[in-house]
Design a protein around this nucleic acid. Structure first.
Lengths: 231, 231
DNA sequence: ATATAGTGTGTCAAATTTACACCATTAAAT
DNA sequence: ATTTAATGGTGTAAATTTGACACACTATAT
C-alpha cells in the first residue's frame, strides 16, 4: 500500500514572547499590527512560516522582521491549535520565548510593513492583545517562571556585568515575590558559577556594588547531569 | 491594507508517546506501520490532523484509530518542525504524551489499516523507530521524568488501588535509580494525598501489602498554588 | 515446621532553608 | 565639613528536610 501525503492542510505560524528586563521591571515586546484582522491592535510578534525553513529558523526570521532583533536564543514552549483561534481560518501557531538584555539594545523597529511599531511593555497591566495572544503570553510567562529555577535564564536578561541586587530584583519580578537579601546572596554564591569581578558599579549616587559575571562554563560543569532533562 | 491568509503551507501531524507500566517495567506503545514510507517499521502512533479539529482532539482521534485506546488524558510536549524530518515533504508534528494503566486494559489493536499492529514495548532497549520518532520519544521521556516531581502523573500509570512498593518501583523505573524504601514512604505519606484503604493486596504468596488510593481532591487542595505553573 | 519473599517501621547526623538587623560606603545636598 | 539619602554587604541560630541505615513481621507454599 502506497499512500501519498495529502496536500497541505494548515497554515502554520510562529508567535514570540520576548522578555526583557529594565528598570527593575519585566517587560515583553509587543507590536502594533498593520494588517487585518486585528489591524491596529497590539499583538505578540508573529507571522507565517515558509515551507522551506524549520520552525526554529522561522522563529528567528519572523522576530527579526517584526522587531529588528537578531540572534536571540529562542525556545519553543507550546503549540496552539484550536480550530477558531484565527478568525480567517485554520492557523496553528508554535509559540517561542526568548530573553534578552534591553540595556544598550538599539531601539526595536519593524523591518517589514506588517507591523507599524514595536516596543517594550511591562508584563503587569498588559492591554488586551489580538487573537489568543494573551493566553499565549500567560503560558509563556508560567513557563519561564518555572524554568528560572533550573535553567540559567536570568543571566540572559541582565547585562553581562551585573550586581547581586539586580539579579535579585529580576528574580523577584519573575516570581512576583520578595526574597530575603542575605539568603539570596548566600544561595547564589554557593552555586559557584558567579564570578566576582574587580569592578564596581559606576554612576550611582550611593555606595557602588560589586559586579559579577555569569560563568557559563562552570555552570554547565556543575549541572551537566540535569541539563539533558530539558528541551 | 488587507491581506488574505496564504493557502495552506504545511502538513500537520500528531505523534503520541503513550506510557504504561506493567510488571515493574515502563513501556510505550508502538505500532507497526502499514504504509510507505517506513512501511513495516516500528513507529509511534501518529497521523495527520484534519482541518476542522483542534490538535488536542486530533491527538485523541489518532490515538484511537491506531490503538483502540480512548479518553486518555493527553498532553502536548513538543513540536518538531525540521524541514526534512519526513522524506516525502514538509510535515510538522506536535508530540503528545499520555500515561495509562496497562493492567486490565483490553488488548490494544489498530482500528484503521494504517497500522498492522500495536503493542507495548519496554522503554529500555527500544528498537530503531521510523522518522525522528526516537528523538520524539527521548524528548517525551525526559519531559515526564521531570514532571514526575511536580505533577501527579505517577497515579495515572498505576491501578486505582496500589501498594507503596508499586508506587516506588514506578518512580524507580522512570527516574532510573534506586530509592530508599523508608525514606520514600515517609515522604509520600507526608504529603497527605494518599488514602490508606482497609484493603490488602490479594493473590500474593507472601505478606500482603496495604492498598492505597490517590486522593486527587486533596492533592489539588494542597498544591493549588503550584498547579497553574504548568501547561 | 520451615523456607521464602516481600512488608513495614525509627533514629540520628548532615545538609538545607528560613528568619532576622545593623554597620559601611558613596555621592549629593547643605 | 557635616549631614542625609540610598543602597551595599555581612552572620548566626533555629527549624526543616534529606539521607543513611537494619531487622522483625506476616502470609503463603511446601
Amino acid at each position: 500500500m502506497e499512500v501519498k501525503l495529502p496536500t497541505f492542510n494548515s497554515v502554520f505560524s510562529i508567535d514570540c514572547v520576548i522578555f526583557g528586563f529594565e528598570a527593575g521591571e519585566l517587560k515583553i515586546l509587543l507590536i502594533e499590527r498593520n494588517e487585518e484582522p486585528f489591524k491596529d491592535w497590539l499583538a505578540l510578534p508573529g507571522y507565517i512560516v515558509e515551507q522551506d525553513e524549520s520552525i526554529d529558523d522561522a522563529a528567528e526570521r519572523i522576530l527579526y522582521e517584526l522587531t529588528g532583533l537578531r540572534d536571540l536564543h529562542m525556545q519553543q514552549f507550546h503549540t496552539f491549535g484550536e480550530v477558531n483561534r484565527h478568525p480567517q481560518g485554520r492557523v496553528i501557531t508554535v509559540a517561542y520565548y526568548a530573553l534578552i538584555r534591553i540595556n544598550g539594545q538599539k531601539e526595536v523597529k519593524p523591518v517589514t510593513q506588517y507591523a507599524k511599531s514595536a516596543f517594550w511593555h511591562p508584563v503587569n497591566e498588559l492591554p488586551k492583545l489580538a487573537f489568543d495572544h494573551t493566553e499565549i503570553f500567560e503560558t509563556g510567562f508560567n513557563k519561564i517562571r518555572r524554568r528560572l529555577n533550573y535553567q540559567p535564564i536570568a543571566f540572559e536578561l541582565l547585562p553581562e556585568k551585573f550586581t547581586l541586587t539586580q539579579l535579585q530584583s529580576l528574580y523577584e519580578a519573575v516570581l512576583n515575590k520578595k526574597l530575603d537579601k542575605r539568603n539570596f546572596r548566600k544561595k547564589m554564591l554557593s552555586y559557584g558559577f558567579l564570578k566576582e569581578l574587580d569592578e564596581k558599579q559606576k554612576g550611582v549616587s550611593y555606595r557602588a556594588a560589586k559586579l559579577y559575571k555569569f560563568d557559563r562554563r562552570k555552570y554547565t560543569k556543575i549541572f551537566q547531569n540535569d541539563l539533558n532533562l530539558d528541551k
